[in-house]
């Protein structure tokens, strides 16, 4: 009896492993191997295919490289300003759109979600033309009378950052809104009913009921947005090309420049890409800590 059971176990084991072996093999080939290889690559430096082992010299170089520091600061500025704006914006929009007495709800939802389905390059080029010196944004602002001189959106270090933040907020707010809407529909109506009977104002309902109950989803969207902003590439390449004066250069774009624009140093580029990995991991860790129940 026990012998038979053991045999059966082995049969299941072997069969089970055979079922997953294809997936495991593919993951090993497509994910694990490149990760290990890039780690090994980041210990080398050189020009193109002429490389040599340098150990941790690439990491030391990071601390002296002013362009890297600049791109790191730019990326963190985008992160620190854009992610909170976008999360708060999409939370409040989804809360409004969840109201049952709102007419044309699905039309509004569609309109706000639609930017997400546009191609990154297409919308970047559109923003570039809208924010040009004689573009439609300046023309409208001048016409309304908010400004008296056109704003150099793309040729000023400060305003170019503003343009990039505006662009990515437009593109991704609707995407996060969908997560919140889905989660809000899972909140029991009776909780709000009870709050209403107790005389809690809608704003306080939002702060003390909706937000706490959405915490897992907010955490998820925060982490996803953080990772997405750390990898920011398409928008800056197409709208400002990193300029003016590197003021919108991001880490991802610097990696591209190191590999394809400058003398190719794939080892150092791999090291910079690990900076993104480390930052994403550390920030996600802190976000988990902050969101953890006390």
């Amino acid at each position: 009896m026990s012998v038979k059971k053991a045999k059966l176990h082995r049969l299941y084991d072997v069969n089970g492993w055979m079922f997953v072996s294809l997936a495991v093999g593919l993951i090993a080939l497509m994910t694990i191997y490149p990760v290990i290889k890039s780690l090994w690559l980041s210990l080398h430096s050189g020009r193109g295919v002429v490389t040599h082992f340098v150990g941790f010299d690439n990491v030391v170089r990071l601390f002296y490289d002013p362009v890297f520091k600049k791109s790191l600061v730019n990326t963190l500025v985008f992160l620190a300003i854009q992610v909170p704006i976008m999360i708060i914006l999409s939370l409040s929009i989804s809360s409004c759109l969840n109201a049952s007495n709102l007419r044309f709800r699905s039309w509004y939802r569609l309109a706000i979600f639609l930017p997400c389905v546009t191609s990154l390059v297409a919308y970047s080029i559109l923003f570039k033309s809208m924010f040009a010196f004689d573009g439609v944004v300046n023309a409208s602002l001048l016409w309304i009378g908010i400004i008296s001189d056109p704003i150099p959106w793309l040729s000023d270090p400060f305003w170019s950052k503003v343009t990039i933040i505006a662009a990515i907020t437009w593109r991704w707010t609707g995407y996060n809104m969908i997560f919140y809407l889905a989660a809000m529909q899972n909140i029991d109506r009776s909780i709000y009913e009870a709050a209403r009977i107790d005389g809690v104002s809608p704003v306080r309902q939002f702060i003390f009921i909706t937000v706490p109950l959405l915490k897992p989803v907010i955490l998820f969207t925060c982490i996803m947005s953080t990772i997405g902003t750390l990898q920011l590439f398409d928008e800056v390449v197409n709208i400002t090309n990193g300029g003016p004066a590197n003021s919108t250069l991001t880490l991802s774009m610097y990696i591209y420049n190191l590999s394809f624009k400058f003398v190719p140093n794939f080892g150092y580029a791999a090291t910079v890409s690990y900076v993104i990995v480390v930052f994403a991991a550390v920030l996600a860790f802190f976000q988990f800590k902050v969101a953890k129940d006390k």
Binding site: R47, V67, P157, G243, P244, A245, N246, F262, V263
Partner: peptide
């Protein structure tokens, strides 16, 4: 040489 792109980028950074 081989580093003209790098130099261009460095000069453009200091232009403002």
């Amino acid at each position: 040489g081989m580093f003209t792109q790098e130099a261009d980028s460095a000069v453009a950074t200091q232009m403002p």
